[in-house]
Design a protein around this nucleic acid. Structure first.
Lengths: 325, 325
DNA sequence: CTGAAAGCGCTTACAG
DNA sequence: CTGAAAGCGCTTACAG
């Protein structure tokens, strides 16, 4: 049995397929009484529009892809969730692609765009293709400068870190540490470390930092080494929440109390590490980042002008593991 | 400028579009020399196949959807990641839909199937539509019986929980607690509680349980109340890792040591709560669950017979927060 | 306000 | 082993 198509609706309602199509797309020019009759027929026939016919014709799929290194990570997960909401509001579907640090998968996005499977994509990942390949592909990057003129959305990494460090300083901390996982590829995230370096240089403080390229899930070793090297810290700034949670857990196991014995602020304080996660943090406005990223991508897809660099402000959430109020 | 289509390849190579299509789909019947020439032309023209033409014709999209309540959660995230890998290996793309406890979004999946946007979907979520609606839609459910004959994939909730409880008992624990978040809708997850109930009845132990419908992120209150009600436990079984992590964190903050003062085993020990997460657990074989779910869905899509109920065995990971070895 | 027709880019029996 | 042709289901100028 053939599925019911726009033709069946046209025949049964007594109008042409063009008019049915106009009703489907909400075209204002259709007479009200016509619209009603057609809608009634659609209902009677349980007609549902086949998107592949439309996509073939219009050359737009209404699908975008999001590419993240991994999904089981608070920041990436929250970003994906926020992006999905943005996309859905605009009537778009979201294709998920996890790069798993696998370069091949990164190229797949470009292929999918050329295949007209997706209209564009957002990258929250390392990417090392050359300008030539990216040409003509609607792409937006998070936290990382891409070659060509791919727009960038990032948070205020430098300024927020600096502000957090100043907070420690203002409350008397002088032995201020910094621990973090260095990104494999240069990205805006490195501005967190740069802020620390500038800060200690300016205040003439000792360099108590550990900043290494460690894969996700291996943070424990990094943090253990860091805490062993610097057993007498007043305060620690952690470059992300996984590292911060490890600092917190290890220190508590060693009988330390926050903030009395040690202060801690983390970049990236997404909500779900464990329920009731108390760590003070620089909170990125992930929803806003997703919103800007999506609207920028839409501009690109519809060939409008767009902002090449978007730096989203953050909020400092304090009161539990640092002495600030 | 028009994009290059299969017609251009046909014209330039001197063959018909049918033959080009056969080369594209790897049809064996094409002569080697022909294939080579066409491949060369494809390369020269930088031709890329438009999937929407193919989808319209074949009525298959090669896309499936995964629907989870939220993505920022270790179990769901790992499952999605595993499923993506399965799908990709089979040449399928994965559409992500987060239900956010919003019933409307659940209906969208069905619509997308009817619209031919996706070939089928996997549900890891509550679902309350009636049998009629699900009819003819290729769907697989995780952890939850759906109306109609939607195949189910789940882990051995009852048996694994029982085994963990027996472990406590074997090491002398008698004040054994159970704490967990009760699913809003009846699901296989409730078998964990049932195992506890049966266990204490059989061993004639006191009921030290708390099992309530609490939303994700609100586990702290539940656990606090539980620990206050039962301050003198020997052992706790937590129905999921978010709850377990909260039990762990709160107990450590109160000076308890694991496993000396308190034993703890969790259902659902995914790796990333914090790096180095030490909690003993019933580990679900998420990869295998994803694999079975995907292959079952494929069977449905291609109208083959499939197993209606699939119970995947688990592994008990012990040695750190329980006294077992 | 509406219809007839062209065409988006592909695949697949069918015939040879 | 290959070609010509039909058709998947839609949208959109164009004409009236």
């Amino acid at each position: 049995m053939r599925e019911v198509s726009i033709k069946d609706v046209a025949t049964k309602s007594g109008y042409g397929v063009g008019t049915v199509s106009r009703v489907l797309s909400g075209d204002k020019s259709v007479k009200d009484s016509t619209r009603e009759k057609i809608l009634k027929t659609i209902d009677e026939l349980h007609y549902v529009r086949n998107v592949n016919g439309a996509r073939l014709r219009t050359k737009h799929s209404g699908v975008i892809a999001i590419m993240v290194p991994i999904i089981n990570h608070p920041f990436f997960a929250e970003f994906v969730e926020a992006l999905e909401e943005e996309a859905n509001q605009a009537g778009c579907s979201l294709l998920l692609i996890t790069s798993q640090m696998n370069k091949e998968k990164e190229g797949e996005i470009l292929l999918k765009i050329k295949q007209h499977e997706i209209d564009g994509a957002i990258f929250v990942t390392h990417y090392e293709h050359d300008e030539k390949e990216l040409e003509g592909c609607p792409l937006v990057s998070i936290d990382r400068h891409l070659p060509g003129n791919v727009p960038l959305v990032t948070s205020d990494n430098y300024g927020s870190t600096m502000k957090a460090l100043e907070t420690f300083y203002a409350h008397g901390a002088r032995r201020i540490g910094f621990v973090g996982t260095k990104p494999t590829v240069e990205s805006e995230v490195s501005q967190r470390k740069k802020a620390y370096d500038d800060f200690i240089a300016e205040k003439n403080l000792p360099d108590l930092s550990k900043w290494e390229d460690v894969s996700h899930g291996q943070e424990t070793k990094l943090v253990e080494a860091f805490l062993k090297e610097h057993p007498d810290l007043d305060a620690v700034f952690a470059s992300n929440i996984m590292v911060a949670a490890t600092v917190y857990a290890l220190s508590i196991q060693n009988g330390k109390r926050f903030p009395e014995d040690l202060e801690l602020i983390s970049y990236d304080g997404t909500s779900q590490i464990w329920s009731g996660n108390p760590i003070d943090c620089v909170r990125q406005d992930i929803r806003l980042m997703a919103k800007i990223a999506f609207s920028t991508l839409q501009d690109l897809i519809e060939e409008r002008e767009c902002q090449p660099i978007n730096i989203i402000p953050t909020t400092l959430i304090l009161g539990k593991t640092s002495k600030a109020k």
